[in-house]
Design a protein around this nucleic acid. Structure first.
Length: 281
DNA sequence: CTACAGGCTGGTG
DNA sequence: CACCAGCCTGTA
């Protein structure tokens, strides 16, 4: 157990902000968060947040994963007072953070996300993990009395490669299966690790350039990978919802220049606000 | 039952 | 260049 006290952190909103697909709300209102080969259960009471892990694991992984050292209040305060819509969005979305998710996992997640709905994305990812991911040790995550369903790590590229293309059938991937297969091969072995390493260390422009060459990755998916994994917070993914917001509320264009360097964080508030307004959350 | 999902590819004009 | 049909299939 490790406890922190923190403003601008809301697990419910983070879960529903569309950037992550492996957080589940449990019956006791705690949040089971799976990332790579790790799992943690998080309980939140106002500004008190309890992690079901050791101090070392919190400091060594989850603190960075949840981007806890960024001052989101300052970002919200920077919004143009004259922009009523954006002010409403950041106010409504207080507590959202841009996670720093593992690259390979994020690439696959957003390949699957295209032209797809959230619950189906979650189901596909869970099925993929159950079939090819290692079983995780639930020790310390759940109370000893309860026997939860098994937890699975995110599969490695190598696990998918050795499964072969037919090993991706029956996961609800639809036509995206061939994108996943190609990407697994891309990320396998030393050359794959080198490619992932280059992506991780280069800037936004070069990352986009590299990603857009890949089969099944267009601008929207590439921007999501840049924002939600590589933390290029100037990336501003434009999906159908954001498109409608831009057309409806910013006919003169969104003031990117005012928010240079972190517009992607505002995108996330806008996205959450619109989905909430539509009752999807 | 139909329409739609956090788009992309590949072909056409 | 711009445009857009077609794509898999679970959910609403």
């Amino acid at each position: 157990m490790y406890e922190i006290v923190l403003q601008d952190f809301d697990m419910e909103k983070i879960m529903d902000s569309g950037q992550v697909f492996r957080i589940r709300k449990m019956e006791d209102a705690s949040f089971l968060t799976l990332a790579g080969h790790r799992a943690v259960r998080i309980r939140q009471e106002e500004n008190r947040i309890l992690f079901s892990c050791s101090r070392d694991e919190f400091l060594g992984f989850w603190q960075d994963y949840f981007d806890l050292s960024t001052d989101y209040a300052a970002i919200r305060r920077s919004v143009d007072p004259a922009d009523a819509y954006l002010n409403a969005a950041v106010s409504h979305g207080r507590g959202i953070r841009i996670l720093r998710q593992e690259l390979w996992e994020t690439i696959l997640s957003f390949l699957i996300s295209q032209n797809n709905n959230i619950s189906r994305i979650q189901n596909s990812l869970e099925a993929l993990c159950a079939r090819y991911g290692d079983k995780l040790d639930p020790e310390g995550i759940f109370p000893p009395s309860c026997t939860p369903a098994p937890l699975y790590a995110f599969p490695t590229p190598e696990a998918l490669c050795s499964a072969g293309p037919e090993g991706l059938q029956g996961l609800g991937l639809g036509y995206r299966d061939k994108y996943i297969w190609k990407m697994a091969q891309r990320c396998c072995g030393p050359s794959g690790k080198e490619w992932l390493g280059t992506l991780s260390s280069c800037g936004y422009e070069q990352a986009m350039d590299l990603l857009l060459r890949e089969y099944g990755i267009g601008r929207k998916v590439a921007d999501c990978i840049c924002l939600f994994s590589l933390h290029h917070v100037d990336a501003f993914p434009v999906d159908t919802h954001i498109r409608q917001i831009l057309d409806g509320h910013y006919p003169e264009g969104f003031p990117f220049s005012r928010y240079r360097g972190y517009a992607g964080i505002l995108q996330q508030y806008l996205f959450y606000y619109k989905r909430a307004a539509q009752g999807r959350v």
